[in-house]
Write a protein that binds this DNA or RNA. Structure first.
Lengths: 354, 354
DNA sequence: TTGAAAGCGCTAACAC
DNA sequence: GTGTTAGCGCTTTCAA
């Protein structure tokens, strides 16, 4: 392995000399630390421009010997659930940016308990990190929290879904409406569809925002545009009780002896899959979301035909990188809203996504 | 934005003190530079282990002030062609790793001229970089070249396709056979397919490996497994001459008044698309590969139904990162063969891939 | 408001 | 073989 000496790089000394000041002064203008006369400031800035001076990040990091912490607020989860992918992304990002002396910490809260969320927010504000990544679940509380972050100049990034404030540094997530629209297209696939089962989860917790609402709108819009005659039947199941699920679905499908088109717009399509497996029902086309292990297993074994996936882990990595670029290098993100791709997975290509 | 002082990090000085040697010696064992007694060596190694010493990469890079060059050998191309995506990946990677003082250089050759390839290989060996990324087009020549790299201890990574040597540091590319298999599945999509048109490009250059051969095998295997009664008709077109293409395809489709299933296994499906557009033929299902701008345009305007894409740019970035991890941090790649995902694009999700 | 100077942790040349 | 030392380019006192 060959090495090459770095040739004639412009240093802070060159700038200082050319501007007729000391490097202390150059450093001050570099970091906007004030205590510099407007005259010196302008001169230094001009020289920097002229010489094309780029600070050496290694030297800078070495001398300042500070490190940064980025905290990621996500819901607690069990292994294999939706959020475990985000968690994987956090770990990956942590590893990637450790070389910059940046630490990435997951901070978990109970998504069904608002107090637990308030608690972690307080903790974070107590000892504030250099940046925050947040998957918003509680609207009002989150807004209150990010307002506080803004006030302190701490950049924050939304992932998964975003709220209607304007101060966020960036957003990384799926285009929700379009994902529902796409889902309907994949489900119907030019076929002669008369009826679609839209399986949903009972949600009675209030204060929770329903991230799939927009997606559902997209789905229904597609259906009414392309299959105005088809009926969409909502089926509400209770994720806790498998016996109950069987009952509910049995009932829903009771009089239907045609090929069934079934869709779930959250990550739990594996619930339907396991019902179909138990009942040995094969004449149907099932589409769902997200690459949970159970979902992919259902893809492999045929109960689910397609999954639409958003690769939460990559989103998280991208979010962390954006934050690091900003914190360390001062680079702003190319675009604020980063709608990530929607991957279409079936049993033939899913292996290569794992 | 808050900053945190780095607390009690173990430095090379601590190690030196604990081992009862000077930091010069520690540095020597750290870099296997010899000139150290076996006794000191062992002691230092043990102390490093015990204290959990991790060299500070910033200090190291600053002091050694060397920078690394990674060269990427890819074919020349016109804007919008397949290789331009790889080129984009190179630029992206270059930007990403510039913070480590690593430079990424594209090196282009004429893929239809073996001498031009030999020339750049020689040039590279003349002034060897720290690592090489190579998209192999000429089998024998490439093998000769990488053997030389191996001999000099320069790591190289294959992208796009790989050859049958064993010394490569890693491979990043699509699983070719599976991509053909998947393609057939997407093309037929449970429908009642009697006949498929496999459009191919005339290739008379010898010495060139045909990267789509394996893909074609996968495609044909799927067809004979799932549609044994269907016929696959090869249609060879000449990419240079649009008039000739029209003629050839007119002839091929002359007596066929059914819905047509058409596939191309390389990146040129836009050629078929523009024919269909010119002739205003709509009753067909067309599937192709790779997200060239022209292909995506055809997706949007409906001539092409699906594209299977491999995101060459991401592969390149991953390859460069793997090389940097090895060169700078000594981290080996997690797995040697990295089969990247096969994205399924249609007109509804393609925007989010651009 | 500014300059001088002492590091940051590591590398590499040089002297012993 | 080994220790010593002068940097690498930047940050951050501290004194002026």
């Amino acid at each position: 392995m060959e090495e090459h000496k770095q040739e004639g790089k412009i240093t802070i000394n060159d700038v200082a000399k050319a501007a007729g000041v000391s490097k202390g002064t150059v450093d001050r203008v570099l970091h906007d630390r004030g205590e510099v006369s407007e005259k010196s400031r302008e001169k230094v800035l001009r020289v920097i421009e002229e010489l094309g001076f780029k600070p050496n990040m290694y030297a800078s990091m070495l001398a300042s010997r500070k490190h940064h912490i980025i905290q990621c607020l996500i819901p607690e989860f069990f292994t294999g659930e939706f959020w475990s992918l985000t968690d994987k992304g956090i770990a990956e990002a942590a590893d990637l940016v450790s070389r910059y002396g940046v630490e990435v910490q997951p901070v978990r809260y109970d998504q069904y308990n608002i107090e637990s969320f308030q608690k972690v927010c307080e903790d974070i504000l107590q000892n504030p990190p250099s940046g925050v990544i947040i998957a918003p679940m509680f609207r009002a509380e989150t807004l209150r929290f990010v307002r506080e972050l803004s006030a302190r100049g701490i950049p924050y990034i939304y992932v998964d879904s975003k709220l209607e404030d304007d101060d966020y540094f960036a957003y990384f997530g799926m285009p929700m409406y379009q994902s529902g629209y796409l889902c309907a297209d994949i489900l119907t696939m030019d076929q002669d569809v008369k009826k679609v089962y839209l399986v949903r989860i009972a949600r009675d917790k209030k204060g929770l925002s329903d991230p799939t609402l927009t997606r559902r709108t997209g789905f229904l819009d597609y259906m009414s545009e392309h299959y105005p005659a088809a009926t969409v039947q909502n089926v509400i199941i209770d994720p806790i009780d498998a016996g109950k699920i069987d009952e509910t679905l049995d009932e829903a499908f009771a009089d239907d002896h045609q090929k069934k088109y079934i869709v779930m717009l959250n990550s739990r399509v594996h619930l339907v899959a396991s019902y179909l497996k138990r009942k040995n029902i094969t004449d149907c086309r099932v589409v769902g979301f997200d690459v949970l292990e159970k979902n992919v297993a259902a893809l492999r074994s045929g109960q689910v035909k397609y999954l639409i996936a958003q690769h939460t882990d990559k989103q998280t990595v991208a979010a962390v990188n954006a934050l690091v670029d900003w914190i360390i290098l001062g680079k702003t993100v190319a675009q604020k809203d980063n709608y990530t791709q929607m991957d279409i997975l079936n049993n033939l290509n899913c292996d290569y996504y794992m």
